[in-house]
Simulated scan of single mutants.
Amino acid sequence: MAWNDFHAAGISVSAWARVRGFNPRLVYEILRGERKCLRGASALIAKELGMK
Rank of each mutant, 00 (worst) to 15 (best):
P24Q: 13
A41P: 08
R25P: 02
G50P: 00
R39E: 04
L44D: 08
S42V: 00
I30V: 15
A2P: 01
S42D: 01
W16P: 10
E48A: 15
P24L: 11
R18A: 14
V27M: 15
R25K: 09
G40W: 08
M51V: 09
I11H: 03
G10V: 12
A15N: 06
H7Y: 12
V19L: 12
E29M: 03
F22V: 04
S12M: 12
R32E: 08
F6G: 14
A15Q: 07
E34G: 10
L44E: 09
A15C: 03
I30D: 10
R18W: 09
A15V: 02
K36Y: 12
A43Y: 06
S42Y: 00
L31E: 01
M1A: 07
R39Y: 02
A41R: 11
L31T: 00
A2T: 05
A46G: 13
N4Y: 03
W3P: 01
V19N: 09
V13Q: 08
V27N: 15
V13H: 02
K47L: 04
E48T: 06
A17L: 13
A46R: 14
P24M: 11
A46T: 10
A43T: 01
I11Y: 05
R18C: 12
L38T: 06
E48N: 13
E48F: 11
G10L: 10
V27K: 15
L31R: 01
G21H: 05
M1Q: 03
A2I: 04
K47N: 04
L31S: 00
